[in-house]
């Protein structure tokens, strides 16, 4: 009897606690390939537009160059018409080429720009104006432990004042030189460069979270940013605050909240809202603050 009971309970515990978990082949629901446009204009710089197509969710990973939408006609019209051409840059961290469309006329502050992208017989249009004021960083510091909606993390702290009298949206930017010994900090934690042979290379990263000044117009604001790449004591970086236009702010905030819902299984899923009719993406602008040197204290 004792043996029977043992066998029975062993089976029960096995059934309950090792409930079957298996990878399932999910039949992809029918969907039409979508076009993605991402273009943020910076005063003083020539436009860069990332044009790609989507990939079915469960398909194997493909590189940006495989998804790049070649053969498109891309124009950005401001005070003059800029016809963008195909170009690319090598991503030294991920060791891959990233293609894009590049303009030749630097953007100007106060100018309205119209975008037109024609690809596979369809034309996508949007408009933006670069009218944001430049933010000024007051101070930078570092915290080894900080809690926010992303959880506990270390962070670079940037203090600045909101520009009074207008609706403003901000995100963080950090530029630095790293080498192949530097790993990604959080979600890219398993990755490091495998193609630079110890040579230093330049990276520029943007913060995921977007600060809105609703209800705190003209008051002191603070970013606590967890950078995407690991660091050592005395690593030097340059930090910036970008002033975004409303479209870009809402788009990147939407992506941020979607990312959070992907990482945290207890967060409701977020559907991305496009800012360009007929495709997914954004056409916007950012004004970058003056840089401030930041050296990691630990």
């Amino acid at each position: 009897m004792n043996t029977i009971l043992k066998i029975t309970y062993l089976s029960l515990s096995f059934l309950l606690l090792f409930s079957c978990q298996k990878e399932v082949k999910v039949k992809q629901v029918p969907y039409d390939e979508q076009v993605s446009i991402e273009c943020i204009l910076y005063p003083g710089k020539v436009p860069q537009l990332f044009l790609s197509t989507s990939v079915a969710f469960f398909s194997s990973n493909v590189s940006p160059s495989q998804l790049f939408a070649r053969g498109a006609t891309v124009t950005i019209s401001g005070s003059s018409v800029d016809n963008l051409y195909m170009d690319s840059v090598f991503d030294n961290f991920q060791c891959r080429w990233v293609p894009f469309y590049k303009g030749s006329i630097p953007c100007e502050i106060g100018q309205t720009y119209n975008l037109s992208v024609t690809y596979n017989g369809k034309t996508y249009t949007s408009t933006t104006i670069i009218s944001q004021a430049k933010a000024t960083i007051n101070a930078t510091s570092f915290t080894a432990k900080f809690h926010d909606i992303y959880g506990e993390h270390e962070g670079v702290i940037i203090d600045f004042d909101d520009i009074a009298g207008s609706e403003n949206f901000y995100r963080f930017q950090m530029n630095r030189m790293i080498d192949s010994s530097v790993y990604g900090a959080s979600n890219l934690g398993l990755i490091h460069s495998t193609c630079t042979n110890g040579a230093k290379f330049y990276i520029s990263e943007f913060g995921r979270s977007v600060l809105f000044d609703k209800g705190i117009d003209g008051l002191a604001m603070q970013f606590v940013i967890e950078p995407a790449f690991k660091h050592k004591k005395d690593d030097s970086t340059y930090v910036f605050v970008q002033s975004l236009d409303k479209n870009s702010a809402e788009f990147y905030d939407n992506i941020d909240r979607q990312k959070l819902s992907q990482l945290n299984p207890f967060v409701e899923p977020v559907f991305l809202k496009t800012k360009i009719d007929g495709c997914i993406g954004v056409f916007g602008s950012a004004v970058v603050s003056d840089s401030v040197l930041f050296i990691y204290p630990e």
Binding site: S52, F57, F271, L272, I280
Partner: peptide, 30 residues
């Protein structure tokens, strides 16, 4: 239940997004 239908690369400074975002076409689509 809900699953995304597509993935799109975030090319411009997408390091903290893991370089990708998801496209949902409909809630409870699966």
């Amino acid at each position: 239940y809900t699953l995304p239908v597509a993935r799109i690369n975030v090319s411009d400074g997408g390091s903290l997004y893991d370089g990708v975002y998801y496209v949902y076409d409909k809630r409870n689509n699966y």
